[in-house]
Computed example of a mutant assay.
Amino acid sequence: MKNIIIICIISLTFSGCKDTNKQNDKLNVVTTTSMITDLVSNIGGDAINLQGLMGSGVDPHLYKASEGDVTKLVNADLIFYNGLHLEGKLVEVFEKMEHQGVKTIAISDTLDKNTLIGSEYFASNYDPHIWFNIEYWEQVTTFVVHKLSEAIPSESSVFEENGQQYLDKLKELKEEITNTISSLPKEKRILVTAHDAFNYFGKSFDFEVVGLQGLSTATEAGVQDVQKLATFIIDNQVKAIFVESSVPKRTIEALQAAVKSKGHDVKIGGTLYSDALGNAGTVEGTYIGMFKYNVNTIVNALK
């Protein structure tokens, strides 16, 4: 119902009172998740006016646009979103905006769908957590450079230079975390988290990934799921399990209690950033900083 109201507001705003004044005459760009906001910020820099919808700790699976977000959306010239039904509750809004003349771009459109991990939890039938594959993020970087250059041809050289610098940083990131993970024996690479956000990470770095919930936080883990995973943890001698910053920690605490009830102990190894970055201004508030933090937290807890 709320999405229907938002769509109606957008329709009325476009038909009558969209604010066409651009701050500094720059393109108004809106992004959804904090990972995309960070990426577009690195590429667009001062050449665009950038606003992100979702901040630290916001779960995109359950996100609903506020009145302030509607204002951002209706005044946008370009909107970047993840796609693959990650922002499930905004799909109808984006479709409506496309019809109203705002260019909406799903960054996942640049990826070969045949390489994605399948998922029955999403209407797209794919796992949408694509940012945990660094090679995908490199492809997305090039895609965003291209789309911004199309929108503002006069700044294309700036976008291309910024994009190349960011690609260099992603290459360094991949090398650094590969070295860090190599210190963890393969038999210890079992990652148990609140929900299945890390499957692309697991595929890239040879981890077995087990989520208490499904790929979407809209699904809830039942008692049977908790007991089954508790047995798995004991059988595989998993030392630590992990909370996620955008998912309530009670599910992982329930899992820890279930393991303890069976006469075993498992520690909570820390909080991982899955569907959102950390607070702005912190190391974890950037994609690269988040990735390093997650890997260090995982490796240190499982050693």
Rank of each mutant, 00 (worst) to 15 (best):
K2N: 13
I9P: 02
T20M: 14
N21C: 13
K22G: 03
N28T: 00
T32N: 06
S41L: 06
I43D: 02
Q51W: 01
M54G: 00
M54R: 01
K64M: 11
A65F: 00
K72H: 06
V74D: 03
V74K: 05
A76W: 01
I79Y: 05
N82Y: 10
K89D: 11
L90A: 09
F94L: 05
E95Y: 07
T104E: 11
I107R: 01
S108N: 11
S108G: 13
T110E: 06
L111F: 11
I117G: 07
E120S: 15
Y121K: 12
Y121A: 14
P128Y: 05
E135V: 12
W137P: 09
E138C: 13
H146V: 11
P153W: 10
E155G: 07
N162Y: 08
Q164N: 15
E172P: 05
L173K: 03
E176K: 13
E176W: 02
I177S: 03
N179L: 15
R189A: 09
R189L: 10
R189W: 06
G202P: 00
F205N: 00
F207I: 00
V210Q: 08
T217C: 04
E220Q: 14
V223T: 13
L229W: 00
I233G: 04
I234L: 07
I234K: 04
Q237D: 15
S245C: 08
P248M: 09
E253Y: 12
A254C: 05
A258F: 03
A258W: 03
S261V: 10
G270W: 05
G278K: 11
G285I: 02
G289V: 09
V295N: 02
V299G: 08
L302N: 02
